[in-house]
Design a binder for these strands. Structure first.
Length: 727
DNA sequence: GTTTTATTTGTGTAGACAGCATGTC
DNA sequence: CTACACAAATAAAAC
């Protein structure tokens, strides 16, 4: 099917022809035949890299030219950024909506396409963003994630709510291959488009004893070494191809990169540059290992890396400099980073309390699908490594030839229901039990199951929890109403349990304790917690016995101790302990610290709002701690940090020279201040300080001469969040 | 006697969404 | 309750 024959705007046709795209891929043509341009709902379940984005883009452009508005939902912030880039052009206005401060929510209504994460969309619904009602085409990327245990329920509810608001909504679901696409298509009232077609040939095989076994053929390797995983790398490297190696733990990823560096010994100036960047971004031992490996063309990738280091690795690989990345599943679902050969070394993964478990077939497909770069590689290879002869057949059967799993709705779970029923009630989707039942009747869960006894029971349980915790009330006529607390919790996007814990525990305290507050937040279901190692136990026990009186929560569970460790990391950050020292002491990665801080920043903000209404005596205490988390500063820097232009570093420098407050700034020798802050900043800071203290500036003014040329706005690179520096 | 290599033992285990209002090195 | 990779400690073998 020719592009020219399609009812899409001319600008899009020009864009495609500039990219050399003149004809649709077969699965894309199928979508058109199935009514893509006739506002028909579609579930497109086709392999990775077979052109799903193009399908969505064409439909959206057509919809926009007909006066419509499009919402594109993605699972990851990084994907949101990627799609934003993809869709941006002269003709359409594209906006991005994630938890990051990209654009103000009310402006989003002006865009033709809004790219958003599922949680952000849910949050926008809860805050009644008016423009959402005008969305006429909804694209859901990776819609199979509806079955994800931790995030699937939200995605399902978001889709359900958008459909409810706009019965005329066209929905396009983009999905990986799954076991039961018919069920999902049925729920969406959508035409199902499936295909096995790929633009680059994908060969899937199993390596054993010096040869890769494919269906009907094999490839013998020249193997001088006994390490299978390295042989597979060298084999591809000799032909000039790149490898992605999937392993099951961070430690394994690092170890592989180290070994690969030894055998690759690739040298280039570009590699040295990337290594330098990484060494600067991550000063921990693990960062040094990465920098050294990258110097030789090998890298690893996992969530413990700071973002700047991760991005350097991705760029180095994309530019063809880095020969191999050993990765945990971070790379499987995330960015588009294909390689000639994908080596799936670890197909088992540890699960707490269960031991090693085989990864789902769907996840194997995600990884294997990364093999083969369109237009660059003649083919792609996905190779599993067998440990003995018997394993060869087993691996074919369990992964390569296995059908993908069915996906199942997650929205019947009690904790999910608490959260989402509260939202339904506080945002007016349902006013009583009957309406709630009616809404849930239309869920994917209800469409999958004939009997809804479990759903029914859990709705009841969730409602009584919400009533007991004072989030909703049931009037005599059966009307369900959100209380002010319930509305607040829902809008802050907190799990009801998190909100209740904060209100109850904080409200019970007589005196404030920063450590107690941090630990409380670390106990909530909305907080990520570190895994507790055996070597941490001593430290955590010690803190428990010596600082027990600072802690507000007392249940002696495993979670409790994990929360102690996590709170200790957060506290260290607030005490200005250097990052590499924190990493060293607690055995965590630099990226993990940022994850904790980011998470706590949100929860501290929410706590401040809750404290304001339900424990006003702690109002300033909580807000001060919020500022400390945000900036990573000790209490003593609080007066300085409030000044614009002063962050943790400058505040510390001023403090150490005896300038501890805005008043001090005004009475200090101006020369000293200029020495620390520079002329331009000093002027602005002094003005601020004068305003704050109510003093006039004329005592200090003209000693500061305007000699520094202000940097042009276009030359400063805006950064999205406070944690991005170091790039 | 010293260095290299094999064997045993103990340890730890993936990822990442959300609020709000302008800024850090 | 289930496994496995890795690193450190230890033993064995080669030089």
């Amino acid at each position: 099917m020719k592009i020219d024959s399609l009812p899409i705007p001319i600008s899009l046709r020009t864009k495609y022809s500039a990219l050399g795209i003149t004809e649709l891929y077969p699965p894309q043509a199928k979508c058109v035949e199935a009514g893509l341009f006739n506002r028909k709902n579609q579930l497109v379940a086709i392999p990775t890299a077979s052109g799903k984005t193009l399908v969505a883009e064409m439909a959206m452009q057509k919809e926009i030219s007909d006066g419509g508005k499009c919402l594109y939902i993605v699972p990851l912030k990084a994907l949101a950024a990627e799609k934003y880039e993809d869709f941006s052009g002269k003709e359409v206005k594209v906006g991005i909506a994630t938890g990051d401060p990209d654009q103000r929510d009310e402006y989003l209504g002006r865009y033709d396409i809004i790219v958003a994460t599922s949680e952000k969309t849910d949050s926008l619904l809860r805050n009644r963003a008016e423009w959402l009602k005008r969305v006429s085409l909804l694209v859901v990327d990776e819609i199979h994630l509806i079955g994800d245990p931790s995030r699937g329920a939200t995605l399902e509810m978001v889709i359900a709510k958008l459909r409810y608001q706009n019965p005329n909504l066209q929905i396009i679901g983009l999905s990986a291959t799954m076991g039961n696409p018919e069920e999902l298509a049925n729920w969406l009232n959508a035409a199902l488009v499936t295909s096995e077609w790929r633009p680059v040939d994908l060969r899937e095989g199993v390596y054993y004893n010096g040869a890769i076994h494919f269906h009907g053929s094999e490839r013998i390797l020249q193997t001088p070494k006994k390490d299978d995983d390295l042989n597979l790398l060298l084999d591809t490297a000799e032909e000039g191809g790149q490898c992605l190696v999937f392993v099951s733990s961070r430690r394994s990823a690092e170890a592989y990169a180290k070994r690969a560096a030894v055998v690759l010994k690739k040298k280039s100036e570009a590699l040295d540059l990337y290594a330098e960047k990484i060494a600067k971004a991550d000063t921990t031992p693990s960062g040094k290992v990465l920098a050294n490996s990258v110097k030789n063309g090998a890298a690893f990738h996992h969530a413990g890396l700071p973002r700047a280091a991760r991005e350097a690795v991705e760029e180095g690989f994309r530019k063809g400099e880095i020969q191999v990345i050993a990765s945990t599943p971070t790379l499987a679902a995330g960015l588009n980073l294909p390689a000639r050969r994908v080596i799936i070394r670890d197909y088992q993964r540890y699960e707490a309390g269960v031991g090693m478990n085989p990864i789902p077939v769907m996840e194997y497909r995600q990884m294997a699908g990364r093999a083969g770069r369109p237009r660059l590689d003649p083919y792609g290879e996905a190779v599993l490594i067998a440990k003995d002869r018997d394993a060869v057949d087993v691996l074919f059967e369990k992964f390569i030839d296995a059908p993908a799993e069915n996906i199942a709705s997650q929205c019947q779970k009690e904790n999910e229901l608490r959260n989402h029923l509260l939202a339904l009630i506080t945002t007016g989707f349902a006013k009583n039990r009957a309406e709630l039942d009616g809404f849930m009747e239309k869920s994917f869960y209800a469409s999958q199951k004939a009997v809804h006894r479990r759903l029914d029971r859990n709705i009841g349980k969730a409602l009584s929890y919400l009533i007991e915790s004072g989030m909703i009330t049931e009037e005599t006529g059966g009307e369900l109403l959100g209380t002010s607390f319930g509305v607040l919790a829902s809008r802050l996007y907190l799990d009801p349990e998190t909100a209740s814990l904060i209100r109850d525990i904080l409200g019970k305290q007589e005196t404030f304790s920063a450590f107690g507050m941090l630990h409380l937040l670390c106990m909530t279901p909305n907080m990520f917690r570190f895994y507790l190692k055996a070597s941490d136990e001593r430290l955590v026990d010690e803190v428990f016995s010596e600082r027990g009186d600072e802690l507000w929560c007392e249940e002696l569970s495993e979670e409790f101790f994990a929360a102690v460790k996590t709170a200790l990391v957060a506290e260290a950050w607030c005490e200005e302990v250097p990052e590499d020292v924190i990493c060293e002491n607690f055995g965590v990665g630099a990226g993990d610290i940022h994850a904790v801080v980011e998470n706590l920043r949100w929860l501290m903000h929410a706590s401040a709002r809750i404290a304001h209404e339900f424990a006003p005596r702690f109002d300033t205490d909580v807000r001060d701690l919020e500022i400390r988390i945000e900036n990573g500063v000790k209490e003593e820097l609080l007066p300085l940090i409030t000044l614009r232009g002063i962050g943790r570093i400058r505040a510390r420098r001023l403090f150490d020279r005896g300038i501890t407050t805005p008043e001090d700034l005004l009475s200090a020798e101006p020369k000293d201040v200029v020495g620390i802050l520079g002329t331009v900043l000093t002027k602005s800071v002094l003005e601020q300080a004068a305003k704050k203290t109510g003093r006039t500036l004329d005592a200090v003014p003209l000693l500061i001469e305007e000699e520094a040329v202000p940097v042009k706005a276009s030359e400063t690179k805006p950064q999205k969040t406070l944690f991005d520096f170091g790039e």
